[in-house]
Design a protein around this nucleic acid. Sequence first.
DNA 1: AGGTGGTGATACCGCTCGGTAACATCCCTC
DNA 2: GAGGGATGTTACCGAGCGGTATCACCACCT
Lengths: 205, 205
Amino acid sequence: MTTANPRTQTDSSPEDAPRRSARDRIFNAARELFYRQGIRAVGVESIAQEAGATKMSLYRAFESKDELVAECLKQSEREAWLWWEATTGPHRDDPRAALLAIFDSLALKAKTCEKRGCAIGNAAVELTDDAHPARAGVVAYNREKRRRLRALCKALGAHDHETLADGLQLLMDGAYLSRLSLGAAGPNASLRQAAESLIDAYTSA
Amino acid sequence: MTTANPRTQTDSSPEDAPRRSARDRIFNAARELFYRQGIRAVGVESIAQEAGATKMSLYRAFESKDELVAECLKQSEREAWLWWEATTGPHRDDPRAALLAIFDSLALKAKTCEKRGCAIGNAAVELTDDAHPARAGVVAYNREKRRRLRALCKALGAHDHETLADGLQLLMDGAYLSRLSLGAAGPNASLRQAAESLIDAYTSA
DNA sequence: AGGTGGTGATACCGCTCGGTAACATCCCTC
DNA sequence: GAGGGATGTTACCGAGCGGTATCACCACCT
């Protein structure tokens, strides 16, 4: 018994509030550990431990580790689109401002949180088996990202808007990957400026 | 005895020639497997098997799996710089042509081989522990890439040549990462065009 | 003929992996 | 107060992990 059983605390105990369900705690711990240490590097036992739960609770809530991974990434995708809406929303009538807002926010997050890049992008590196239940979601996410970037670039009135959209997506993905080795002070530092230059190149004259 | 012992073949046997050393076979098999399936996904036993060798020979030639990984990445780095020299060499007096040659070659390799992106970039995702013997090499490689890109952009006479170099590095890294989910027909298809546009944006007027 | 060095073969080590069974315990609801 | 559902606890499983010890073998060199 290395950890006290929290269930024995009274509900009025100031810390930890009413305690989330085991599933939620496991889910959150898994997302955190997968992101920080990598999917394959994290075992189910350490997830349960970090969540203050047990392996049995993990397997009662999720079919398998692979399925847990898939659900974690699905959540990452949902949050990504929420971020996207929140970031571009204020500039619904100004595609250029919307795009720049995305890259601004991206650059900010590189400096503050998200030092380990993009959870979904990292999964694309780690999950090499096409049969993995999370693969399809990874591909779908990037396809949707491409679709949205194209829509913005088209609304921008860019000539060759599809090429511009691809270029911007490469910059985004590059920012994620580059951050892992050179951090926010590496090429990431020029992310916003590079994006703006590329946008201008496709909208001027 | 699932595989015949190759040592029993005569040296004049047409296939396989004089047979490389166990170390070489293991090294090559490891590079191939690490690249295709990921570092953590590959066990030492399967490396030895793929090499037609045994685990003992692996541990006689390499200190540990981690050290083997580090040496594999070191070799990837050496080959990368050889490729860099070979690609930019013919354009030693034309930085713009040298840069475009890099992106042309990159786009070509995306379509033919190297569907799994960059071995070193992938390692940056998988090896999250700073103490891993391969980490330092990964960082050094990306730093050197940045230095070379800056030198080329400076020779190009670009205004704000450091920002341009960063932008190009982001495009390169993005090409590697994007390829893993959307393949060569994804944003990679616009890689060269995006690079050229960015270069032009920093050299015109 | 006799090393010697590189290699294969095999068995083994302790550990962790993903995953399961069986039973105890708690809280909430009826 | 009697269920019942969610959770914790413990023990276990087969498999694979990274890594090692021991012995046999074969090619080559002197």
